[in-house]
Design a protein around this nucleic acid. Sequence first.
DNA 1: GTAATAGTGTCTCTGAGACATTATCGT
DNA 2: ACGATAATGTCTCAGAGACACTATTAC
Lengths: 299, 299
Amino acid sequence: MIEKDYNSEEEFIKNYNPNKYEKPSVTVDTLIFTIGEEVSNNYRELENKELQILLIRRKGHPFKSKWAIPGGFVNIAESVDQAAARELKEETGVENVYLEQLYTWGEVNRDPRMRVISTSYIALVNKEQLKVEAGDDADDAKWFSISAKVLRENKEYQEDETVYEKVIELTLKNKEIELSSEIKITKNIIGNIVKTNIEESSNNMIAFDHGKIIYYALERLKNKIEYTDIAFNLMGEYFTLTELENVYEVILNKKFTAANFRRKIEHMVIETGKYSNEIGEKKKGHRPAKLYSFNPYWN
Amino acid sequence: MIEKDYNSEEEFIKNYNPNKYEKPSVTVDTLIFTIGEEVSNNYRELENKELQILLIRRKGHPFKSKWAIPGGFVNIAESVDQAAARELKEETGVENVYLEQLYTWGEVNRDPRMRVISTSYIALVNKEQLKVEAGDDADDAKWFSISAKVLRENKEYQEDETVYEKVIELTLKNKEIELSSEIKITKNIIGNIVKTNIEESSNNMIAFDHGKIIYYALERLKNKIEYTDIAFNLMGEYFTLTELENVYEVILNKKFTAANFRRKIEHMVIETGKYSNEIGEKKKGHRPAKLYSFNPYWN
DNA sequence: GTAATAGTGTCTCTGAGACATTATCGT
DNA sequence: ACGATAATGTCTCAGAGACACTATTAC
């Protein structure tokens, strides 16, 4: 890069040509997660919880009528964070929720139209706070439950190289439709250097590389829920410990023992003195639970 | 976004105008970390280890003659990952080292010339593998040792809001020069929602927002070294457990007890049968140490 | 012998997990 | 009374940390 030697920074900037290089387009995608519940018929039983993500059916090309993570272009006058928050608000009406940058996807051929670099964000919202239940939306946005299954796992010890492969099937479904994506994770170990590669080998009705992105987000959630307090972003103001436990179980896809779970998180919550049968219409045929709130001083 | 309704995806793409929106420029910055050592005069003593980062003195505007993380524009035909690897190779000559995406910085006024979105990467290299000791480089690249000090910490419990503030002083220095940056971390807790903000309040001879980026990378390193094997990317093929311990200590800025540290990482290493006095010219006036190598099967 | 690092053994404390037991509600 | 969830107590096991101790080298 050879440039004329300007004396002052001001002079330099005045003469700078910002279109010297061909530029990629930059977009944001916001993965909106929430906890949904299936109501049960039994008056005694609690609702079944599941992790859900909001997807949008594309109206135009490319990937017309396939399902995609909501997103759009970053305007020239807004920060990338702001663009993500804007997309979130447009789609769900909510603001001031948990919003964390996930990853920037920079492969050359992600979008058939042109070179697009996309920064993805994770948003965690509590379903009670959603003004409009998405799904009524003109956009054809719907919540999909998320589940992932390991299809294959393989480790090969060669001479100078260890290769680890795992194939995951990601399933996104609701009452009307079921989407799926097969993701292959490859770890390549040579000497001390571990290289990890993620690719989407096949996919059913999911736009772009969004299956891969959802998988990546799920892994991030699993990690962060273990050592941070992000789970509380999915809770309402008051919650029972069983509800909180369900959120952990749904994201980590494993069961806890109630007694152990309570000890694990007791320093993060505050007893409110309220009970689950006092608020709302949740009359259940069993012992009412104490309602807790998040303890902002826990660490 | 109103678009004509094309019948096929091919037709749509052919007619798509990729310059409908004004685009930002996209750059990559690669934070190159290594472990450096100060040789000691005492024949018995081991070298003092320190965490170092490679910075470049800017030759042109803006921020002329200030120190910056090496980086550059993403070419239209290369992926963002490739751009980061290319920058790394240009600067240090190394390839096939650990390279991890850190974060994408998308504030509007990061660069006075124009709108620049920058994706930063962390590279971990072993100094022995560096062909050219950077610093001889025509680019005026130099290694700086990194240290961070907490200047102030404050927690305020207001009615509906908890505000936590921490001010960190980041110091980057080598024999000739000392740079510094003051970084303010603010946590804002309202209800269940925790928002974290990082800003650079002041800065001495560091270009752009690079002080903030280095701080962010340091935090990532501290986190990941605890639950992954990234530390081994900073080691050579053979190493002693004391060397490994030093790497952990330098990054985490705390001391371990040797016996405990050994138990902690024993499942990640393999005894090689070699000893530290057999390789190289490291004749030291104390008991020679066993040499270990990374155990790729540890998890 | 000395001064330095290398390496091991033991104790305590803490947190996670398994499991058993009691409490309380709506029907 | 029944069937569900709520809540607590106890035991074991594993890992982290503190600390004391022994081993081995170059000079």
